[in-house]
Amino acid sequence: MKKGVMRPGHIQLRVLDMEEALKHYRDLLGLIEMDRDQQGRVYLKGWTEVDKFSVVLREADAPGMDFVGFKCLSEDVVDSLRAELIEFGCEVEDIPAGELLDCGRRVRFNSPSGHYFELFASKQQTGKWGIGEVNPEAWPQGLTGMKAVRFDHCLLYGPNIAGTADIFCKVLGFDLAEQVIEPDGNIIARFLTTSSKAHDVAFIEHPEQGKLHHASFWLETWEDVLRAADLISMNDVSLDIGPTRHGLTHGKTIYFFDPCGNRSEVFCGGDYHYPDHPPVTWQAEQLGKAIFYHDRQLNERFLTVLT
C-alpha cells in the first residue's frame, strides 16, 4: 500500500443470462445479493466484506470483464494518482458518484494489455453480512453454497503485460510478488500485490487484448475447497481443473466456469509478500509445475480458454 491503494474493491463481469448467473454467483459461490440497479445490474459481495458490494454482474451479448476497481485510502489519494496516471500516459475517464449504486466517483484508466481499471475511495459500508461489529460471532448462519468469504483477485490475459505492470508498480505502488521468466529473460506472468497477499491482480502475456482468465474468491480451508468440489459435481457445474495446488503462490484451488463461460476460482492458503521481499520466480521450463504443482503438466484448456 505504498501509494495508498488498499485492495481490489470491485469487478464488473458480463454475463449472457442474469438469472442463470445468479444461480452461480449467489447460490453456488454463496455471495450475498446486495442490490440491483435500473440498468439491471446485480450487486453482490462475500459475507466478510465491509463495503456494500464487490461483484457487479451486467447482462451483455458477450461474457468477460468490464473493469476491476481498486479502493484507495482517501479521495486525495485518488486525485494524486489520477494526475500521475495522466502523466504516465494513461487515458483517464471520470465516472461520477452514483453510476455504481452507493459508490463514490471513480477514476477509470486503460492499459496496454487492453483492460480497464478504476480507482475509488468512497463506497457505502454496510458491514460484514449477518454479524455485528461488536462482539461479532465467528460466521453468520444462513450462508449458501461455497460460502465465499471475499472477492480476492483476478487474473487477466493480454499483450504487453510489462506495460500494464509498470502502471501498477510505478504509479500505483504495487509490488511484483511472483513471476514466470522465459530463458531469454522475458517475463510471461506477473503477480502483483498492494498488500501482504500473494496477488491482488495478476497478468499473463497473451496476444488478444482485454481478456479475463478468472475471478477468484477466498475460502478459509482446504476442506472448504473440497466441499466446493463436491458442490460442483452435485450441481453438474462445468469443471475446469482441481482440486489441486499451484506452484505459483502455492494456493490450494479449484477452477470452474459460470453458466456463460467466465472462469471462477475458489482457493485457500498460499504465499505472503512484504515490500522487502524479492519476487518469487518460476522458470518457464517448469511452467507445468508452476501452474499445477501436483500434475506438473500443462493443460491446454487452462491456458487458452478465456472470456
Binding site: 440498468q39 495522466i86 487515458e91 475517464e93 471520470d94 465516472i95 452514483g98
Partner: peptide, 17 residues
C-alpha cells in the same frame, strides 16, 4: 474487444477509451 458501457454521463479527460 467488447467495450464496457455506462448509461450515466461521464466527464472525459483526454481521449475517451
Amino acid at each position: 474487444n467488447t467495450q464496457f458501457y455506462s448509461d450515466s454521463p461521464a466527464t472525459t479527460v483526454g481521449n475517451n477509451p
